[in-house]
């Protein structure tokens, strides 16, 4: 992933519940207490990019001129991260029961990327297995949708984004046979409600595969 990858940045902006392990002067504004120190054991949501460094860095080793720091504090990092909402028991249970109907986008729009980072940080084999299971199951469904929308739009010019093909269906409504049209519309409705639940990565997969099916389709038809 590139340094300027917008999805990477947005992923790292996901907030993670953290607990401060030290009193830190001047940081009170994070808790809406400007000018006051932040207390040890204060719980706060911090973005991943900040939290994962503070949770790893030794508070002792970072500033050598700290005379008042005690020796036993040396190995304790600044904060402790706890499992974010996205990977809580509730969510993993939901994943296990029905991966396909899960609204992943509302849980976290960058679920997979965050899971990747989280698993990498804690070597969480259990979570990585659940997530890959989730991806396989949902990929199936995504592919089905990408494939069938590509098939349904037999008119080459009408193959476009979902919204534009929707418009064309509306136009067709007036003159074409309404039976197949209803099918198309219900299908599009079902697909769009499923597509709303996709995570950013899944959207990318959908777009790419849809594009590719569409391309092959276009080639097949132009040859006739």
């Amino acid at each position: 992933m590139g340094y300027y990858d917008i999805d990477d940045m947005l992923t790292e902006g996901s907030e993670i519940p953290c607990k401060f392990l030290h009193d830190i002067p001047g940081l009170g504004y994070l808790e809406n207490n400007p000018g006051k120190p932040i207390k040890a054991n204060a719980k706060l949501m911090l973005p991943y990019w900040l939290a994962h460094i503070l949770a790893v860095v030794d508070s002792g080793s970072i500033d050598d001129n700290s005379e008042n720091r005690m020796d036993d504090e040396r190995s304790v990092p600044f904060i402790e991260m706890s499992t974010p909402e996205s990977f809580s028991q509730k969510v993993t249970n939901a994943i296990k029961t029905d991966p396909v109907s899960l609204d992943l986008h509302s849980i976290n729009p960058h679920f997979y990327e965050l899971a990747l980072k989280w698993c990498g940080l804690y070597s969480d084999k259990n979570l990585s297995e659940i997530v890959s299971h989730l991806l396989i199951q949902r990929a199936q469904e995504i592919n089905n949708f990408a494939f069938s929308t590509a098939i349904q739009n037999k008119n080459i010019n009408s193959i476009g984004s979902i919204t534009s093909s929707n418009n064309i269906n509306d136009n067709k409504n007036s003159n074409d046979n309404s039976n197949s049209n209803n099918n198309n519309n219900t299908h599009l409705l079902a697909s769009s409600s499923f597509l709303m639940t996709l995570d950013e990565l899944e959207k990318q997969v959908y777009k790419k595969s849809h594009e590719s099916y569409k391309d092959s389709k276009r080639w097949m038809y132009q040859n006739k």
């Binding site: 990747l116 070597s123 969480d124 979570l127 990585s128 890959s132 991806l135 396989i136």
Partner: peptide, 14 residues
């Protein structure tokens, strides 16, 4: 794309 992500996810859990 899917296999590459699966690979990364799998590797991250190791």
């Amino acid at each position: 794309t899917v296999m590459d992500k699966l690979r990364l996810i799998h590797a991250s859990g190791q």
